[in-house]
C-alpha cells in the first residue's frame, strides 16, 4: 500500500494561492524531493501533510488512513516525524535532553509527575545521537551548537518517534556543502534500511539529484513536473521556469557521480 498519498491539496492565504491541487504518492523506503523557487508552496505542502496547516481542499492518507486536518501531535503518533525549515528545538534543554524529551513524548510519559525526566531514556537517546553523529556533543546546551549540528539533532528528535514517514523541510540549510551530502546520505541510508518514506525539500540541487528517487517540481503552488531525476532534468518546462543553467549542471554532476 502507498505509505503517503496526497490528493488535490489546496491552500489559500488571502489572495495567495500557496498550493493548488497538489497530488503525489510516496512508498516506504523512498526519497521524494519537492523542489521549487522561494514561495512556491513547498513548506505549505509540508505543513498540510504534517498537520500544521489544514488544507482548504484535498486529502492526505497515511497507509490508507485519512489524516487530513489532524493536529500535528496526532499525525506524529501515526508515525510521522518531521524537521522544520527553521529548526525547532527545545532551546533550554541540552542536546540529549531534546532527544530524551522526544522519547518521553513518544512513550506517552509526558504526564508523569515524579521521576527525573533527564534520567529517562538516556541510552536510547544516546543511540539516536550516535546515528546522526552528535553523540560527542550530547551534554552541551543545544543553543551553543552550530546551525548544521542543530539540524542533525532535529533529525534525531524526529527519529525518536520511530517514524514510518519523515518530513524534512530544507534539512541541510545552513550546512557546509560537504556536510550536506553526508547528512543526505545518512538520511537515505536510514530510509532504505528501515523502509521509512522521506519527503524533503532542498534548494541544494546536488543533494536533490544525488539522493532523491523521485522529484516533484512546484511553482507558484502548482506541480509543473514530476518523475525521476533524469526525467525532471530533461523536462524543458522545468529548465525554463526553474532549474536553468545551474540546475542542469547539478543534475549532470549527479549522474556522473552515480555513473
Amino acid at each position: 500500500m502507498t505509505l503517503l498519498s496526497a490528493e488535490g491539496l489546496t491552500k489559500r492565504f488571502g489572495g495567495v494561492l500557496a498550493a493548488k491541487d497538489v497530488s503525489f504518492g510516496l512508498e516506504g523506503g523512498e526519497m521524494l524531493a519537492i523542489i521549487g523557487p522561494n514561495g512556491a508552496g513547498k513548506s505549505t505542502t509540508f505543513n498540510m501533510v504534517g498537520g500544521q496547516l489544514r488544507p482548504d481542499a484535498g486529502r492526505v492518507t497515511l497507509a490508507g488512513q485519512d489524516i487530513t486536518g489532524m493536529p500535528p501531535r496526532a499525525v506524529c503518533r501515526m508515525g510521522v516525524g518531521r524537521t522544520f525549515q527553521v529548526a525547532q528545538t527545545f532551546l533550554s534543554f541540552s542536546v540529549i535532553g531534546n532527544v530524551q524529551m522526544a522519547l518521553i513524548a513518544h512513550h506517552g510519559q509526558t504526564r508523569m509527575l515524579l521521576p527525573d525526566a533527564m534520567a529517562m531514556h538516556q541510552d536510547a537517546a544516546l543511540a539516536l545521537l550516535e546515528r546522526v553523529g552528535m553523540a560527542a556533543q550530547a551534554d552541551r546546551p543545544i543553543g551553543e551548537l552550530a546551525y548544521g549540528d542543530v539540524k542533525r539533532v532535529e533529525l534525531a528528535i524526529a527519529l525518536a518517534a520511530a517514524p514510518r514517514l519523515l518530513l524534512m523541510d530544507e534539512p541541510t540549510a545552513g550546512m557546509a556543502p560537504a556536510e550536506r551530502s553526508a547528512l543526505m546520505a545518512l538520511v537515505a541510508g536510514i530510509a532504505r534500511a528501515e523502509r521509512i518514506g522521506v519527503l524533503f525539500t532542498e534548494h541544494d540541487m546536488d543533494a536533490v539529484f544525488a539522493h532523491a528517487d523521485r522529484i516533484l517540481v512546484l511553482v507558484r503552488g502548482e506541480i509543473i513536473a514530476r518523475g525521476t531525476p533524469e526525467e525532471v532534468r530533461a523536462d524543458p518546462e522545468v529548465q525554463r521556469v526553474y532549474l536553468g543553467h545551474s540546475g542542469t549542471r547539478a543534475a549532470e554532476r549527479a549522474r556522473r557521480a552515480h555513473g
Binding site: Q88, F90, S92
Partner: peptide
C-alpha cells in the same frame, strides 16, 4: 519538562 519544552517551542512539542 514537557511544559518547558512547550514553552521553548510549541511547534516542536506538537510535532513530537
Amino acid at each position: 519538562a514537557t511544559l518547558r519544552a512547550a514553552r521553548d517551542s510549541a511547534q516542536r512539542a506538537d510535532a513530537i
